Simulated assay, not measured.
Amino acid sequence: MDQMKTMDRLKKRAEFLAVAGGARASRRGFVLQKRDPGTESPDRAARIGYTVTKKMGNSPERNRIRRRLREAIRATGEHAVAGTDYVLIGRRAALSQPFDLLVSDLISGFDALKRPTSGPRQHERGKEPARQPGQATSPERRER
């Protein structure tokens, strides 16, 4: 059984932050984020970073989530686009989800991120976009 060589990893915080501004695909066991390949090195292998926050449990649980995601990447690595940086944010459901379902979710996540998007996100979560002067923000304001 030939096993794929492991992908390069993201290690620096700046690399993770650069990926965070790109496209994302949410699945039950993880969130997959992507940063498009730059013109500087489109021929290099895809790189991937793993994040599991303390909200997901104690360290053995977080490490188990990370190991399951790493093994799923080994199984589906050929779906990653060369030169692209990815970040996998693990969720607690990755612990109880059957492995073959985790792998199929990862494949669908890679495929979803291959589709063209409208561009990077414009505003942070929870903040409303700027409104024009005189524009009502809600129906209650219009009735006054």
Results as ranks from 00 to 15, higher is better:
N63K: 09
A45I: 06
G29I: 06
A93L: 06
F16T: 01
F110N: 03
R62I: 09
R67V: 11
L32V: 08
N58W: 01
T117V: 11
E78G: 07
A75G: 10
P37R: 10
E140I: 03
G134Y: 04
Y50V: 12
M4G: 03
P133W: 02
L32F: 10
Q33V: 07
K114T: 07
R35W: 03
Q97W: 02
G126R: 06
T53V: 14
A72Y: 12
S96M: 12
D111L: 15
Q122K: 14
R121Y: 08
V87S: 04
P133A: 09
I73P: 05
S96A: 10
V19C: 10
I48W: 10
R125E: 12
T39S: 15
L101T: 13
Y50H: 15
K114D: 10
A45F: 06
R13H: 07
S138L: 04
L95F: 01
A136V: 03
D111P: 03
E15C: 03
G134M: 02
G22P: 14
P37C: 06
G83T: 08
K34I: 13
R28G: 06
L106C: 03
L102T: 01
K34R: 14
D111G: 07
Q3Y: 06
L17G: 04
K34H: 09
R144Q: 08
D43T: 08
R67S: 12
T117S: 13
S59Q: 06
P60L: 07
R62K: 15
A14R: 09
E143T: 07
K114H: 09
T51A: 15
R66V: 07
F16A: 02
E71P: 03
D8R: 08
K127Q: 14
G49I: 06
G134K: 00
I73V: 15
G38R: 08
R47E: 02
P98A: 02
E61R: 15
R9G: 03
T53Q: 13
L102K: 00
L101C: 13
P120Q: 07
P98G: 00
A20E: 04
R70N: 09
R70W: 10
D8E: 07
Q135M: 03
K127F: 07
N63I: 12
L88E: 09
E78Y: 08
A25D: 10
Q3M: 11
E78K: 11
K34A: 15
I89L: 09
R74T: 13
F99N: 05
T51K: 11
L69E: 12
R115C: 02
E61V: 12
R74Q: 14
G21N: 15
E143A: 08
D100F: 01
M4L: 14
G83E: 06
K54M: 06
A75H: 14
Q132N: 03
V31D: 00
A25L: 05
P133E: 13
G83D: 09
A82N: 12
S96W: 05
S104F: 02
N63R: 11
E78C: 07
V87F: 01
S59W: 08
A136P: 04
P133G: 07
A112E: 03
L113K: 01
S96L: 12
A23C: 01
P116R: 10
M1H: 15
G57C: 04
E78F: 07
E40Q: 05
